[in-house]
Amino acid sequence: MTVQVRYFAALREALGSGEAVQLPAGSRVADLRAALVARSPAHAERLAPGRAVRCAVAQVMCQDEQQVLSDGAEVAFFPPVTGG
């Protein structure tokens, strides 16, 4: 399956606005993050486990990286939010 990844703020500046990623069916957010980390040193630096990265799936804040993704899902990674 394919998911559409989007980046915002500091992650967008480092990695671009987004990219399409092929994943095995049934993959979870954590699997996607691991696949992205393997893409380049810049990805690894920004998305490695332990970095303060927040995620949204289908434009809803993801509270659990074990959430299963579906084909065509829009998954965004971004720094902690700082609006208001």
């Binding site: 915002f8 703020a9 500091a10 949204a56 804040m61 965004a76 971004f78 720094p79 939010v81 700082t82 609006g83 208001g84």
Partner: peptide
Amino acid sequence: LMDYLKTQAPFWKK
């Protein structure tokens, strides 16, 4: 609403 917005709404300040 402000507490929610500060921690849950996707905005970023530079």
